[in-house]
Design a binder for these strands. Structure first.
Lengths: 184, 184
DNA sequence: AGTTACAAACAGACCGGTTGGTATGGCGGA
DNA sequence: TCCGCCATACCAACCGGTCTGTTTGTAACT
């Protein structure tokens, strides 16, 4: 892997775990085993540019992952259940949810940086779009599908927040069980 | 209002808006028009002690507020709808949701400080408890009520996150409409 | 092929500013 | 006089960012 990708990879994980302000450049550089010079060579505009690039690659990773799951299952109900179950496994094995959530970045930066906020909004929109398409394929009306997609995005994001707070996977498990009721 | 309460009040708002790491002591002091000496007189253990005290008073404020709404309406459906509508109004007038959310603090600190994480968990638990009681009063079984309460907490928290990200109140409005389907 | 030229890639010292935290001093009331 | 309350000055540590070099790869010309 080349230097730039390495930086993005490690920085993405750190940003997800500790948020934007919570991670210092030095910490990132130390984790990458490299110097400031090389970071500022690849990201001349510094930390914020790095974050936005991280969010974009994260968007690719997440959406590809979700899309794959949603293609494998015939209906939204089954697909979303499988997706959440994957999150639970991820959480129980790794202790944190490094995969899908970036709520720390959202809530820190939403009021501080519009570019970052927009990048996050775009990411949520993309995820919600996958739900929406599947719901339309399920036969829901446009309006209904949109409503359900928003609910799904909110519930899952909130569920991850609860899991992280309680250090328990119960909230996501309950959501996995109760979500079908929502999709109707 | 005495000095200590003033510090708590202002710090709480700032913490909610910008998160824990995002707010510096100097910023808090400047907003309070006071000096470091007085802060460290009232909070000898510094910033983290202040945050935890803020979270506790926030818990009182939030729960009292929610409880009042939930007492005024006969069923969970109506009460929760009224609650979310209040959030929407709050968001549309002030631009941010200073009232109920503290997600920035959660997601930043969950992996960094156990005392803070516990304080947040306690707060969520308290809110969820109010939902739970009302659901039991509605006649739901223990298990069912618990499941719904978790879903409500997650969905509303996630909805606020989406609103902040999109700078729009639409997500919460949709949730307000769709929530009744969940409570059944 | 050998030499030159140049730019990309990286290293690390250094900068001003800010961070959370401390130590000291003063001041009004009991 | 003593003590709660607050203000000021100051601290080391760290922040993101800039700076000047040095190394390395590679293309061009003789």
């Amino acid at each position: 892997m080349d230097t730039k990708s390495l930086i993005i990879d490690i920085a993405t994980t750190l940003f997800q775990q500790k948020g934007y302000i919570g991670v210092g450049l030095n910490e990132i550089l130390k984790a990458c085993n490299m110097s400031k010079g090389s970071l500022y060579h690849h990201f001349p505009n510094g930390k914020e540019e790095l974050l936005i690039v991280c969010l974009q690659t994260l968007e690719d990773t997440i959406t590809k992952d979700i899309e794959e799951i949603f293609e494998r299952y015939p209906t939204t109900k089954e697909a979303s259940k499988a997706m959440i179950e994957k999150l639970v496994v991820n959480f129980e094995t790794e202790g944190t949810i490094t995969g899908y959530t970036f709520s720390s970045i959202v809530s820190e930066m939403a009021s501080l940086s519009d570019p970052v906020r927009n990048a996050c909004a775009h990411l949520y929109q993309k995820i919600q779009g996958i739900y929406l398409d599947k719901l339309l394929a399920d036969g829901f009306s446009k309006e209904k599908a949109h409503s359900i997609a928003v609910m799904m995005t909110a519930t899952i994001e909130g569920g991850m927040l609860l899991c992280l707070t309680q250090k328990a996977s119960e909230p996501l498990k309950i959501i996995s069980q109760a979500l079908p009721k929502l999709i109707s």
